[in-house]
Amino acid sequence: MKNSNQPMMKERFYPVRHIVLLALAIFWLIPIVWLLLCSFSTSNSMSISHFFPEKLSLIQYKNLLFKTDAANQFPRWMLNTFLIAAFNCLISTFFVLQVAYAMSKMRFRARKGLMNIGMILGLFPGFLSMIAVYFIMKTFNLTNSHIGMIIVYSASSGMGYLIAKGFFDTIPNSMCEAAKIDGASQNSIFFRIIIPMSKPIIVYTSISAFLAPWVDFIFAKIMLNSGIAKDWTVALGLYGMLDRSRKNLYFGQFCAGGVLVSIPISILFVVMQKFYVEGITSGSAKG
């Protein structure tokens, strides 16, 4: 970090900083490498003596995908999670964009008040209300159902409008004014002008809404409590595989499952990455 702006000596190689970086990178990659190695090992249980498995094979993947049983319904979990994620993505994106547009581009009396209420609600721990939501869903017989999960994930998604609002704030108001003079309604300004201009934030919002069910563990655990493996999402299912009684039978499959789940998530993440920083900084600075 010394003299970071010295323009000279570009070609010199500085070994110390590269060794530090290499050490850090290894530290960060070890768990990932271990996950991969375990997923290709033949042993079902966790190896405690070898870091590298003695023999590499695809048996864990084969068992995971084709040998379903009471504790392993991986293909089913993927499908469940995908459906929940897809619907959540659709509904949440609409909700978020709607709220963000109203808060960013329109002026009305209750605007500030609603924004403050939203902020206060955000300070309550999320699953305090979850417990009551569980009972509400139970009275409508929607626990242990995927429709219930979709509702739980997407119903309150409008509260996460801040990042999108930050983005809309950067679109000049003069553009909307010009459209209004040309006779466009607010509705067509929203759909014809703002939405086509907001591709980055739509991608960001929809991908993060799509990812939520894949990585959420706690809401799924509260809502899907029947104990029937077929109902679960991926997160819940993989957690169940490492249950104390099952750990020694399913550890290999858990790792294989972890690898398989990571593939779509990392692809989406690479797409979203570009907008991630923009979202964090614009959303928070202008919130």
């Binding site: 709607q98 709220v99 609600l121 309550f124 209300s129």
Partner: peptide, 19 residues
């Protein structure tokens, strides 16, 4: 715009929180 999202928040965040 706000009717449905706010309705969702009232039903699934505000009412549960009050309870």
């Amino acid at each position: 715009l706000l009717a449905v999202p706010v309705g969702g928040i009232v039903l699934f965040t505000i009412i549960p929180l009050i309870v």
